[in-house]
C-alpha cells in the first residue's frame, strides 16, 4: 500500500471517529441505542442530543480532539519536525483563533490546566500543589493527539514514543497521561508500516504504554492510578473473547475496562475494540463510539490507528469530502504535504 493511503486513511479515520463519537459522549451503550440509534448501534453522524451544552453543531463536526491533532500537524509541517514549541503554538492557536471557537468551546479541564501552564498564568495555591503526585489529570488529552507522532514516524516505535512525550509533557504533566499517549503513538507508528499485523499493533501499544511510563517518570509529575499497560492486556482478552458478538463486546469492555476520560480506561478499550473488529476502520469506530462515555476520544484514537492500518480504501468515499467541508479543513492537502515531508 502507498504510504499516502495510510496517512490519509489515518487522518480520515480519526476525523470520522471523533465526529461520530461527539454526540454520543457521556452516554451508556443502552442510552445511545435508545435515544440516538433508534434501537440500533449508531453507525453514522447524528445530531447532538437534547442535553448537549451546544446543540447547534452540524453532524460531521469534529470535536477538540481531532481539531488539535490537525492544527498540531500543520504546525509540525511548518516547523519541519515535532517540537515542544510547535505543539504549544497549536494549542494556543486553537484557543485564540475565533475560527476554531466551536472546538475550543469544548476544551477539557486537563487541557485548560495545561494551557495555563504554557501561558504561565498564576493560579491560586491549592493543597494539591504540595502533593508529590497528581491523580486528577491522568486523562486521555495527551493520547487523543499523540497518534500524529505515529504518522510522523512510520515504523519507528522509539521515536514515536519520544515525540509523544515531547509533544505533550508541557501541557500534560502526568506519567499516566503520557503512558497512554506513548501507547497510541507507538501503535500508530507500527500500523503505518507495510506488513504489520494486528498483533504487531497491539504489542506496540503495550510496549508504548510501558516505555512511555518509564520515560515519563524522568520528566513528568507522578500519578497513582491503574496501569495503562496492564489494562490493555485485559482489554485485548475481552476483545478477543467477544469478537463474534460486538454488542456483548462493548458491554463487557465498558463494564470491566471503562471508556471514561482517564487514560487508563479509554486507551486500553481502544486496543480491545481494535482486536474485536479485526482492524476494519468503520467497525472499529462503531465499537468505540457506541461504548459511549468519552466516545469522541476513543473514536479519534481508534480511527487513527485503524485508518493507518487499513488505509483510505477501507473507508467509504463519502467521508473525506463531507468532513473536509463541514469542518473547513483541507485534509487531503495535509496528507499530501505529510507524505512529502515525512522521512
Amino acid at each position: 500500500m502507498k504510504r499516502y493511503d495510510r496517512i490519509l486513511g489515518s487522518l480520515v479515520g480519526a476525523a470520522i471517529g471523533n465526529a461520530m463519537g461527539a454526540p454520543l459522549e457521556t452516554r451508556t451503550l443502552d442510552l445511545i441505542k435508545k435515544e440516538l440509534g433508534h434501537g440500533e448501534l449508531v453507525r453514522d453522524y447524528v445530531d447532538m442530543p437534547y442535553d448537549a451544552i451546544n446543540q447547534n453543531i452540524r453532524p460531521g463536526t469534529v470535536s477538540y480532539d481531532f481539531a488539535i491533532s490537525y492544527l498540531s500537524l500543520l504546525e509540525f509541517v511548518k516547523e519541519g519536525g515535532i517540537t515542544k514549541e510547535a505543539s504549544a503554538r497549536a494549542l494556543l492557536e486553537l484557543k485564540n483563533n475565533p475560527k476554531y471557537e466551536v472546538y475550543a468551546a469544548r476544551t477539557d479541564t486537563a487541557t485548560k490546566v495545561g494551557l495555563d501552564r504554557i501561558e504561565k498564568v498564576k493560579h491560586e495555591w491549592t493543597p494539591y500543589d504540595d502533593l508529590p503526585v497528581d491523580n486528577r489529570y491522568l486523562t486521555s488529552s495527551a493520547a487523543m493527539r499523540s497518534w500524529v507522532c505515529g504518522l510522523w514516524n512510520p515504523g519507528k516505535v522509539e521515536k514515536a514514543i519520544d515525540d509523544a512525550i515531547l509533544m505533550s509533557k508541557e501541557a500534560y504533566d502526568n506519567v499516566i497521561a503520557l503512558s497512554g499517549a506513548a501507547s497510541i503513538a507507538a501503535a500508530t507508528a507500527v500500523a503505518m508500516l507495510d506488513g504489520s499485523t494486528l498483533s504487531d499493533i497491539v504489542e506496540a501499544g503495550i510496549t508504548g504504554a510501558h516505555k512511555g511510563y518509564e520515560k515519563a517518570m524522568y520528566v513528568a509529575r507522578n500519578s497513582a492510578g491503574a496501569s495503562v499497560e496492564e489494562r490493555i492486556k485485559l482489554a485485548v482478552k475481552i476483545g478477543l473473547k467477544y469478537s463474534c458478538d460486538h454488542e456483548r463486546c462493548i458491554r463487557e469492555m465498558t463494564d470491566l475496562i471503562g471508556t471514561g476520560i482517564n487514560a487508563n480506561e479509554a486507551i486500553p478499550s481502544v486496543f480491545g475494540f481494535l482486536v474485536a473488529s479485526g482492524g476494519d476502520v468503520m467497525e472499529a469506530i462503531c465499537l468505540a463510539v457506541n461504548a459511549g462515555n468519552d466516545s469522541d476520544t476513543t473514536g479519534v484514537m481508534i480511527g487513527a490507528i485503524a485508518g493507518a492500518f487499513k488505509g483510505i480504501k477501507n473507508i467509504p468515499e463519502k467521508h473525506l469530502p463531507l468532513l473536509s467541508s463541514v469542518n473547513d479543513m483541507d485534509i487531503e492537502a495535509l496528507a499530501k504535504r505529510l507524505d512529502e515531508i515525512i522521512l
Binding site: T28, D255, L256, G258, N293
Partner: peptide, 13 residues
C-alpha cells in the same frame, strides 16, 4: 444514569 464500569462485575474480577 451514569456511564462507567459495572460495580458487580468489577467486584467479581
Amino acid at each position: 444514569p451514569a456511564a462507567g464500569c459495572s460495580i458487580a462485575k468489577k467486584i467479581a474480577l
